[in-house]
Design a protein around this nucleic acid. Sequence first.
DNA 1: CTATTACTGGGTACAACGTACCCGATTGAA
DNA 2: TTCAATCGGGTACGTTGTACCCAGTAATAG
Lengths: 255, 255
Amino acid sequence: MATPQTGAGDPQRSLELLWREFGPQHSKPGPKPKLTVERIVEAAIAVADREGSCFGMRSVSAELGVGAMTIYRYVPGKRELIDLMVDRLSRIGSGAPDLGTLDWRDGLELVAEGTWEVYRDHPWLLEINQKRPVLGPDSLAGYDFVLAAFAAHDLPDKEINLATTAVMNIVTGTARQYLIRDSAEERPETAEEDWWRAQAPYLEHAVASGRYRHLGRFSDPEAWDLTGHDAMRYALDRFLDGLAPRMEASRRKPA
Amino acid sequence: MATPQTGAGDPQRSLELLWREFGPQHSKPGPKPKLTVERIVEAAIAVADREGSCFGMRSVSAELGVGAMTIYRYVPGKRELIDLMVDRLSRIGSGAPDLGTLDWRDGLELVAEGTWEVYRDHPWLLEINQKRPVLGPDSLAGYDFVLAAFAAHDLPDKEINLATTAVMNIVTGTARQYLIRDSAEERPETAEEDWWRAQAPYLEHAVASGRYRHLGRFSDPEAWDLTGHDAMRYALDRFLDGLAPRMEASRRKPA
DNA sequence: CTATTACTGGGTACAACGTACCCGATTGAA
DNA sequence: TTCAATCGGGTACGTTGTACCCAGTAATAG
């Protein structure tokens, strides 16, 4: 029943942890730490993949085989841990080619598909309510990666920002509608059937009442038979169609 | 810390409540109910507007001036209550003109703007994790309302579905990025400043390191100065630009 | 070497949450 | 009038995040 909010707690603490490898590392008294922040983040992602976004801190502790409160020695709280998990999964495009070598459209499609795959593999990401995005090394690298798609053009900075934001929000918005429902569910296919079976009588009654005129004209039963990926691609493709003239007009001339 | 999930609990119960006015109403023994489902949903929305999506059932009870458990006589649980709240706020376009009298593009823009306003007034809606949408009378009416925009065209049913889904997801995706952060916050403007002040040194250090080549070229400081509404309109406008040729090609000829 | 001191992991405990359950009061139907 | 179903309210339980305390450990100062 619990899904967390993040980015609101203490951004300062999250930031210190996100950029921790850039800080000083002097030796200190006391026992050697048994864990590392990396291991905790990795374990938490594994638990969230299994249990969904409502994973508990006690599950993370159990996954690591330590006491319930031990991980609090490394991470100030759950919100900050989620900030770390989100940044960790923003490592898209690390294996992909440099977008500078691709056409702008192929590049943006690659970014969208890559992001879609991250959401498909970790649907609980879509249930995280980020108040403000906490920018870590990996999310910053991801953003830098996208910007390469615009390198050969002279689009104004503001419009570059608008366009990349749009692509990300199209992917995220569609993913939220289609991918959340499969997260942490025992039998997704039967759940889908049950759901339709429950709705059907009410829908038929409603349409038969004549109060919904346009819905009744929706005859093709295959109209509803579309995947989340189809929906994402349609929105993305039309958006890129609309962006194309502006990109072509701003193509940088070779000097 | 708690944001609920919905659509997963018992859809059957939610549906019975959503379509309750269409069911039989026979008199039964026992005292007259003090409350109605409508009043509870209305009160819950008021509480959520004030406290955010992490509102508690006890707050709803207090808002109505009844005992903590009383509302459970009317609503089986929190998840089902949220289903009712979501459907209640799907009453868009009730005061708007019939989309059949408008151009398709004006119609879709109207729907997008109306949805945006609902999210602006009730940002907690964006934090609700709907597993599957539970279709009630109001959300069905909203969908029927959108379909009117395609009445004068011969677009295939499947593509109508794809296009409307795309518009809704563009609005929802952008709203989620920009509107959640202001939900249930004491001082949104100072929070924004604090957040940037916390990030700035890390960002500067990162950019100065040269690891993020394209980010460094982002010179115009105004590039980041955009509102959520700007971002939504840009994504929507480019999408509609891309949809336009297909809509024009499918315009129904007068017989 | 010893004493100091910071830091470790583990355990207990608390407040807030959703809600199962029980109870006395109330009211329509037989 | 009697019966039974339903009402509002109160108590209590399990689960959550996490504040706090404690005993053990290891680097450093003398």
